[in-house]
């Protein structure tokens, strides 16, 4: 009777509610912490993996190894002092451009044909002079067994081509 006074009920429900809130908050904190710990250990693991991969990358990129690989598989040679050109103007003019630069042909509008041309104007301006362009020449690519071998190697290493047997 007297126990169930309004104030008592209120206090009781409040305490129960706050207790429940506290409990749920504590649970949430625990869960979040476990998620955080998992994330942290994953990060640490990932960092460790990155360290291993970096070490491996620099191991595989040792200059002597690269030098041997380039020598065997590519047609590249180390730069020599003679091959350095400080100015592009000094370059010999032997490279024929792959696609020769071509002036866009002047389009003559149809009504131009009936246009009256002033007498004073020179004849040449109406129709463009067609200058024969040099025939495009492909720079000769070296075709040597080494290049084929390298292409084959590349193909073999690409998994899409069914190569790559680890």
């Amino acid at each position: 009777m007297k126990i169930f006074k309004l104030s008592t009920l209120l206090a009781l429900s409040l305490s129960v509610a706050s207790g429940a809130m506290l409990f749920s908050t504590a649970q949430k904190v625990q869960q979040t912490e476990s998620v955080l710990n998992r994330a942290r250990s994953a990060v640490a693991q990932e960092q460790q993996t990155i360290r291993v991969l970096r070490a491996e990358w620099d191991y595989l990129n040792r200059p002597d190894r690269l030098e041997a690989l380039v020598k065997n598989n590519l047609e590249l040679a180390p730069a020599k002092p003679e091959t350095l050109q400080p100015d592009t103007a000094d370059l010999p003019n032997v490279f024929v451009p792959f696609v020769p630069a071509r002036k866009p042909a002047r389009i003559i509008p149809e009504d131009a044909l009936v246009k009256t041309v002033p007498v004073s104007s020179p004849e040449g301006e109406l129709l463009p002079q067609t200058v024969p362009l040099p025939k495009p020449q492909m720079p000769e690519m070296p075709q040597e067994p080494a290049r084929d071998q390298f292409q084959k190697l590349l193909n073999d290493l690409t998994p899409a081509n069914g190569g790559d047997k680890p």
Partner: peptide
């Protein structure tokens, strides 16, 4: 010197 100079980009 002839190997390192081009590597370092020193103009002759």
């Amino acid at each position: 010197i002839s190997s390192m100079a081009p590597l370092l980009g020193i103009e002759p």
